[in-house]
Design a protein around this nucleic acid. Structure first.
Lengths: 137, 137
DNA sequence: TATCAGACTTGCAAAATGCAAGTAACTAAG
DNA sequence: CTTAGTTACTTGCATTTTGCAAGTCTGATA
């Protein structure tokens, strides 16, 4: 019953990290959650416009990797608000390294984190309340 | 004559960085060059065993991105020794962030950089000399 | 002449990506 | 109560990328 093929390419921390987030989209999803986006549509409407099937897949993979968690905020149908685990939050350091590198060596790049100053949680809880609350009508 | 499709997904430094090195292999090649591996076979024989066609492709892409440069060390046939540009060397900070994250949050990972202490350039020049020099037999 | 090694290249199957459309539950409007 | 709209996905399918294996080209060695 033992699977002969190893799940990891090597013991190297870099290789193992890339096995989890080494693709074109995963770290952008982490960036967005870190910047206060928690719902599917918020993530889908980021400037890069990730294809929705890829987004659904990345959310599953990142959750399986222990980087994000989906907390249900409604039933019928069940809907999840995605937040970062400590493991996911720690990826902020990697993102910061990419930002510094990109800004220094790739012309025309900027940092997109206005939420940082204006209060991330306020924005996100507002959008979640909008989705969760039964309105009297 | 204007190409309608943008080459980049957004102006975000992270997105632009990932457009250059956001795949499973590029940063491992950078890691190896940083650790003193400069020839094709040295890179191909790293523990992760990158497929050779992918290696050839990544070397082209990383050179096109200004991250590495190939310097010819022989002719007939021409062969290149790959080294990092300042832009490539600066990716060391990103690699370091990945190492720290991986070591803290992915069980079973280690750092593979013995060269750090023993002198990278000594190792690399030795291996290049071996490739370049005519052996007496 | 035959063999071997280094540095790639090529062929092809499998997987990932990306676009577009479809679906399910609820909400708001008429 | 029917219709349209929104959110959060799912599905189909064409294109692209990945990865394994084998082949090529040049030079060195026996």
């Amino acid at each position: 019953m033992s699977n002969a093929k190893p799940l990891t390419r090597s013991a190297c921390a870099i290789a193992n990290s890339l096995d989890l987030v080494g693709d074109r989209w995963s770290l952008l999803v982490v960036r967005d959650v870190l910047h206060g986006k928690h719902t599917y549509s918020e993530l889908a409407n980021s400037p890069e416009h990730i294809p929705t099937n890829i987004l659904a897949d990345r959310l599953k993979r990142l959750e399986a990797a222990g980087i994000i968690v989906g907390t249900p905020y409604q039933k019928h149908p069940i809907r999840y608000a995605y937040t970062l685990t400590p493991k996911g939050t720690a990826l902020g350091e990697v993102l910061l390294a990419f930002v510094r590198w990109g800004k220094q060596y790739i012309p025309g790049t900027v940092t997109l984190n206005r939420e940082r100053a204006t209060g991330v949680s306020a924005t996100s809880t507002a959008s979640l309340r909008r989705a969760r609350v039964k309105r009297p009508g």
